[in-house]
C-alpha cells in the first residue's frame, strides 16, 4: 500500500515522511527569516524616503504660505501705491479680436503718423 510505504520507508534510520516534514519546516523558517529581513531593510529605506518626502512637503507648504503672505492683496496694493501704479483704464482694455481694428484706427490717427519729411523711427533703415 502506498500510504503505509510512505510512513514505513526509512533513510539512514529516519522515516522519509519525517525528513520531508523537517525539510519543509526548515525551508519555511528560512523563507520567513529572509522575507522579514529583506522587508525590514526595504521598510527602513521606505521610512527614510517617506520622512524626506514629508519634510519636503512641509517645506513646500511653508514656501506656499510665504508666497501667499507676500502676494496678499493689501501688500500688493501698498506696493502699487508706492510705485504710483493705478488700475488700468477701461479704454486701455482690448479683446484679442479687436487688436487689428485698433491698429487700423491708430494708423489713421495723425498723432501716430510719422512726421512729414522724416522717416518713422520704426521704419527700416534704407
Amino acid at each position: 500500500m502506498i500510504l503505509s510505504s510512505i510512513f514505513n520507508r526509512r533513510i539512514r534510520g529516519f522515516r522519509l515522511v519525517e525528513v520531508i516534514a523537517l525539510s519543509l519546516l526548515l525551508i519555511m523558517m528560512l523563507g520567513v527569516y529572509f522575507a522579514k529581513t529583506s522587508a525590514g531593510g526595504e521598510r527602513t529605506r521606505i521610512d527614510q524616503v517617506e520622512r524626506q518626502i514629508a519634510a519636503e512637503k512641509s517645506r513646500i507648504r511653508m514656501l506656499d504660505a510665504e508666497v501667499a503672505y507676500l502676494e496678499r492683496p493689501r501688500r500688493v496694493g501698498q506696493l502699487a501705491t508706492l510705485l504710483q501704479l493705478e488700475p488700468m483704464r477701461a479704454d486701455r482694455e482690448a479683446a484679442p479680436d479687436s487688436l487689428s481694428a485698433i491698429a487700423t484706427r491708430a494708423s489713421q490717427n495723425p498723432l501716430y503718423a510719422a512726421p512729414r519729411g522724416k522717416p518713422s523711427a520704426l521704419a527700416p533703415p534704407t
Binding site: 510512513f7 515522511v17 516534514a21 519543509l24 519546516l25 519555511m28 523563507g31 520567513v32 522575507a35 522579514k36 522587508a39 525590514g40 526595504e42 521598510r43 521606505i46 517617506e50
Partner: peptide
Amino acid sequence: FIVTVVFGLAFLVLVIGAAHSAMAGP
C-alpha cells in the same frame, strides 16, 4: 500525521500572512 498536516497548513498561512504584511506598502 493528520494533526501535523493541519498545523503545517496553519503555519503556512501564518507565514504567507506575515510576509505579506511585512512587505505591504505604507
